[in-house]
């Protein structure tokens, strides 16, 4: 598997730098190199990494942040019929400082963008971003003067959820994809041990993964009955 590496020291703001901050480069799985150095430390690190990641992915605290219509479907995922607690992500936090991930649920307005950036900066590492809905993914149907054409113009996005709005189930699927990718992550285990970079796994594209199965559908149900 290939990874995207962001070095910690690069993520500091230089004078007049452009968002998103931090140099990213594609690298091989750092674990491979470890293994060549010493089989024992390599294994130990792998066990530690996956234990920590297992803990992280099952206790993701979302930041209570909504922009527009998609937020209603996001909230729906938190209520009884969809029950996000099944995935350990029900502890909504009102402060970015206590949250693990932020869902950009809705349209990203130019007037709002600097504020979103500030809220993101206030979140502590490790932190992740889910972009929910066409608006946040790409501007969606709002190719209009007041809308940023995709929140990834200034924030690093981990998972994109398609739809306008995505169903609550789709949001939950996005959350699970985020969990999968967190499981593969390599982060510094401590400030003194080893490499201080953040390695994010390059996860396979869902579209490609499911394409073969999807194009095999030959019969579509007519909408005349329920």
């Amino acid at each position: 598997m290939t990874y995207t590496l962001t070095r910690v020291e690069d993520a500091l703001a230089a004078e007049n730098a452009r968002y998103p901050l931090g140099e990213r480069q594609r690298v091989e799985d750092p674990m491979q190199q470890q293994v060549h150095r010493s089989v024992f430390t390599g294994k130990l690190e792998e066990v530690l990494n996956s234990t920590v990641n297992w803990g992280r992915k099952h206790s993701l605290w979302p930041y209570n942040f909504g922009l527009s219509c998609c937020y209603v479907e996001m909230t729906t995922a938190f209520t009884s019929p969809h029950d996000i607690a099944r995935f350990g992500a029900e502890v909504i936090r009102a402060s970015p400082r206590q949250a693990d991930f932020m869902v950009i649920a809705g349209t990203c307005f130019m007037k709002m963008a600097p504020i979103i950036q500030q809220l993101y900066d206030q979140m502590l590492e490790p932190k992740w971003v889910i972009s929910m809905g066409s608006c946040a993914n790409s501007g969606g149907m709002y190719d209009i003067y007041s809308v940023v054409q995709g929140v990834d113009k200034f924030l690093p996005v981990d998972v994109y959820v398609a739809g306008c709005p995505p169903r609550p189930e789709a949001f939950l699927q996005g959350l699970q994809l985020l969990q999968d990718s967190i499981q593969e992550e390599r982060r510094p285990l401590s400030w003194v041990v080893g490499d201080q970079g953040v390695y994010r796994a390059e996860m396979p594209s869902q579209r490609e993964k499911h394409r073969d199965r999807r194009i095999q559908v030959t019969e579509l149900r007519t909408p005349d009955g329920i």
Binding site: A14, E15, N16, R18, A113, P114, Q118, Q149, F154
Partner: peptide
């Protein structure tokens, strides 16, 4: 003034949006 007929409508008619550390500060 956006609703004037000579103001652009589409975001894609102008340069793509970007935000720098400085412009974020100014907007705030």
């Amino acid at each position: 003034h956006p609703l004037r007929k000579d103001h652009h409508a589409r975001a894609t008619e102008v340069d793509p949006y970007s935000m720098t550390v400085e412009s974020q500060e100014t907007e705030q």
